[in-house]
Simulated assay, not measured.
Amino acid sequence: MTIDDPASATPFRYLDVDDPARSYEDLLRAAPRTQRSPVWFGPDTTQWFGEVPVPSDLAVAVGEHDPAEVLSRWWPGPCPDGCACLDPYTGAFPPLIRASGTDRSRRRATLAEAVSFGREAGDLASLAVVDAERPADVPAALGWCGVINYPHQDLVGLSAVLRSWEERFGATLVWIGGFTLVLVVADPPRTREESERVAAEHFAFCPDQIDPQDGREPYSPRSYAREIRRARLWKFWWD
């Protein structure tokens, strides 16, 4: 395995390997020990790094954030009287589903699901390794500016939410682009209630999830929940 530009001060390195999917798997399994997490970069992604300050001790800073508080603060509600755009959660942000349960972040199935994405990434992505102890911390470690046009530019809070999704749903950040994050989900919501609660989290996390941008009417958590129920891929795009 060859790491490009080993003297660089950047928090990431591209990897020159014969079998990127296998290297991704090895790196992902070793990440808690090496404190370096693999991720796939989209084309021209690196120009969007380094624009947001990174805490000196990122892991501690992320751990100090309560994901429920972060999402509640970012929640676009409550709806005005008569509005149903956040139906069925037109008032306060709902409690997190699976908030106190099994940590799914390092399960065998979670790692396997993330690795499966790499086998299909092909020419659409380049493999890199980032100075971050877990994939959830990657956006903050890179100073990623994909959310720079939005009021909430708190990458530490964003990574805290990603950590929570790793633990509750086995959702691993696998791909990062200029304005896009892709997560592979090993244990997605399976019931209507779970899916609607997760839909509310997605709306707080990324306001553009409301608009499918394919000619359909904007989603509510209730209609969006049908899209993510049992879905193994979560994609977030900030316009």
Rank of each mutant, 00 (worst) to 15 (best):
E113P: 00
T10V: 05
D131A: 14
S159M: 10
W238A: 03
I228Q: 01
G122I: 01
T90M: 03
A21E: 10
W238S: 02
P20V: 03
E25M: 06
W40Q: 00
A21C: 08
E227P: 01
L173Y: 08
P55G: 10
R163Q: 13
G63K: 02
R22E: 15
A112S: 15
L155A: 06
E167C: 11
D87L: 05
T2E: 10
E133L: 08
T110S: 12
R106H: 14
T46A: 14
V138T: 15
E133Q: 12
P94A: 11
E69D: 11
L15V: 13
W144Y: 10
I228W: 05
Q213H: 13
R232P: 04
F203T: 09
C145K: 12
R192A: 14
D4Q: 13
Q213E: 08
M1H: 03
Q47W: 06
C145V: 11
I228N: 11
S37V: 07
P218M: 02
A121H: 00
T2V: 09
V60E: 12
S126C: 00
A141M: 05
A59E: 14
A200C: 06
C83P: 03
F179H: 06
P212I: 01
A132I: 01
A204H: 09
C206G: 04
A125M: 08
G215F: 05
A204E: 07
R163T: 15
A204F: 05
E51M: 12
P43R: 09
V174H: 07
S195E: 06
F205A: 15
A21L: 03
D44F: 12
T172F: 02
V70N: 02
L71W: 07
H65Y: 02
T110K: 07
T102E: 15
W144C: 04
R107N: 07
D131W: 00
V129A: 06
L127K: 06
Y89N: 08
I228F: 09
W238C: 09
W144T: 07
F203S: 11
D66Y: 00
W75Q: 11
R104N: 10
K235D: 02
S72R: 15
R98E: 12
A125T: 00
P94V: 10
D87F: 13
V185M: 06
D187R: 07
D123G: 14
G77P: 09
E120G: 06
L181S: 03
T102S: 07
D18V: 07
F93D: 05
R216P: 05
R107G: 09
L71M: 14
A199S: 14
G177Y: 06
R119L: 00
L155V: 01
T46L: 00
T102Q: 15
L155E: 08
W165C: 08
A84K: 15
G143N: 10
L183N: 05
Y89E: 13
P189E: 04
R22I: 11
R33A: 13
A99Q: 13
P94R: 09
L181P: 03
T172Y: 03
R107M: 08
R192S: 10
F169R: 02
E227D: 11
E201L: 09
